[in-house]
Amino acid sequence: MKLITHNMLTSKCLKGVVTGYPLAINATYVKVTEVGFDPEFIGRVIPKLDWEVLWVAADSIGHSEGLPKTLEPKFEENEEFLKKAHRVLLEVEVEEGHLTCPESGRQFPISKGIPNMLLNEAEVQ
């Protein structure tokens, strides 16, 4: 699971949960794979992110180094910043661990990089 996905993922499909965001990350194995850098994409996607959630998520898995806590104005013109954002959003991946719903405490396992968001019958709304 990449952090871009984590930034968008919720547990709101759980019965009784309202926003289910952000999911806490518990990682036992994190890997970094190189991905082609597309500054235009990164610049376009950042306004859609919850930056604070991204920072906290990156920090919780030991990858916040050099990442600003808040967005600066005109970030899309700062290539060095975009590269850092690219790395954290697309290259860092949680391979093993689990996510925890902030409202219900329900855990969603992550194995081989894939979070399992499947619910059991009693949990479906």
């Binding site: 699971m1 990449k2 871009i4 996905t5 968008m8 993922l9 919720t10 547990s11 709101k12 499909c13 965001y21 991905v35 919850d50 081989k112 990089g113 894939i114 979070p115 399992n116 968001m117 499947l118 619910l119 479906v124 709304q125």
Partner: peptide
């Protein structure tokens, strides 16, 4: 919803990111 299909996607090293989920339970994104 199929773990086996997603496992093949991982093997193929697609660039997309993957989530195991049932669309009938809802789209789990903000």
């Amino acid at each position: 919803i199929s773990r086996a299909m997603l496992d093949v996607a991982v093997e193929r090293e697609t660039e997309g990111d993957l989530v195991l989920a049932d669309m009938g339970e809802g789209v789990p994104f903000r």
